[in-house]
Every structure is written in C-alpha cells, then in structure tokens.
Amino acid sequence: MIGDILFLASIYVMIAAGYVIVYSSSRVLNFAHGDVFMISAFMGFSVVSALSLPALFTFPVAIAVGIIAGFAIYAILMSPIAGQPVFAAVLVTIGLGIILRAIVIVGFSGQVIFPGRALGIDNSMINVVAGISMTRYSLVAVASSVVVMAALLAFFRYSKLGFEMRAASFDARLAAYRGMPIHLLFAIAWGIALGFGAFAGGLYGMNNQIGVETAFVGLKALVVALVGGMDSLSGAIPAALIVATLEVLLQRYVDPHLSEVVPFIVLLVILFLRPWGLRGTKEIIDRV
C-alpha cells in the first residue's frame, strides 16, 4: 500500500511540476496538461509497438511528444493572445484539452490499453524494505520523480537559463528590456513542463493503463499543484504525498468513488483555508 501511495505521489509530483512551471512563467492554468500527459503516453506506446522497438523507447518518444506539444502550444496558441486577459488563455487550453481527448477517442477507438502487458515488460513485485513491496516500474517512477525534482530545483536555482526563466516570469517586460528572449524562455518553460508530464504519462502507462479517462489523473494533479502552491516547485512534493495518501487510503478502506473525489474536497478546503498553498507566496493572490 505504501508502494501505491509513493507511486501515485511521484506521478502527481511530476505532473504538478509542469503546472507550476507553466503557471509561474505565464500565469496560465494549463487545462490541457492532463490531456497531453495522456496523449503522449498513447503516442509513446503506439510508436514503440508499431516499430517493435524495445519497451524502454516508450519514454523518449513520449517525452519528445510532450516537448513538441509544449513548444507548439506556446508558439501557436499562447503567444498570439499574449495581450488579452488571462482567462482567454485558460479558455484556449480548455478548448485544446477537449480536442486532444477527441483525437484520442478517434485515433485509439476510445479503448483502454495496458502498455506494460502489451510490450511484455517485467513488472513484478519486489521487496524494497521490509514490509514495503512495489512493482518495478513504480520503483522506477519514484526514483525518477526524485531525480526530476532535484534536477528541476537545481536548474531553476543554479543554471543561467533557469535564472533567466525566473527573471522572465518575475517581470517579463523588464526581462525583455534586458535583452532576454522572453518568448523563447516561455516556450522552453512550456516544453519542460509538458515534457516531464509526458514522462510521467509513460511511467503511468507502464505500471497501470491508459485510456481517455487517464487525463483525469492530470486534473487531480492540478489540485496537487494548488495545494503545494501554484508558484512553488518544492511545495508539490508534500502536497502530492498528502493527496496520494488520502486517495489510496480511502480507496482501500472506504469507497473507491469517494477516493476519486477526495482531491477536489482537498482543493475546496485549501481554497478556504490557505489558498496560496503550502509553500506558495502569499502576495500573488492578494485579496483586492
């Protein structure tokens, strides 16, 4: 059970990091994030099975789909409406989300696939520590989420590019005056965000299944991002653990239907009590 919690939390962390990166760079809640998460998992699986490549190639393909999607969304949809109110951008992502879902329904006939089983990977249970056993791929997911988060935090703190991206998101106009290519920086932010989301999608598919409903996982991860704080990467880690624990516990002991809803109850509670999230900055949502 702890294995389940850790797996779900690590998937949530990787998706939520994408929401946070996009939000802190362009103040947009990307409602198509969960759909990109799902569609890149689908693409990864179908490319690998069509070319009969080794199963591990799913991940690079999925990540490539995610990064390309990120660049494309920013370049084609987000930059033309840069001057308009934010809610227009959010509406665009909502529209994009339903398009992507419809594409999946047509392209994959709306069926649920099990990439792990179909590609014949070894996903047996292994004992990690005494009492905690988890499947191989969920172990991979946990390990890679730790690496991903460490890399992202280090990237934004220490690298020059990360520093510039933070500057551009802090004040885009000032950054542009200083000669930073802000459109490129924002596009990179979208690429990174959706790339990691796609990686999480690949991992989720290997361990569980992919269907149109999988996009819902992405929506629940939005709650994780909010609980952690929409502008805080590190906040996503405890938030993901909290939400995943509640979900798995309720699924085991109370009611599976309730466990699907509990992230949204957490969402309303956090909006009521601490809307800036566990580690977000309070100022950005100042009450008017």
Partner: peptide, 15 residues
C-alpha cells in the same frame, strides 16, 4: 482571491 481561482473551485465542485 485575485485570479482564476473560481475555475478551480468550480472544477472541484463539479466532481
């Protein structure tokens, strides 16, 4: 709150 918190709250309310 400022910003788009209503859309989050209403998604939550939907489910």
């Amino acid at each position: 709150l400022r910003g788009l918190y209503l859309v989050l709250a209403t998604v939550g309310f939907h489910y």
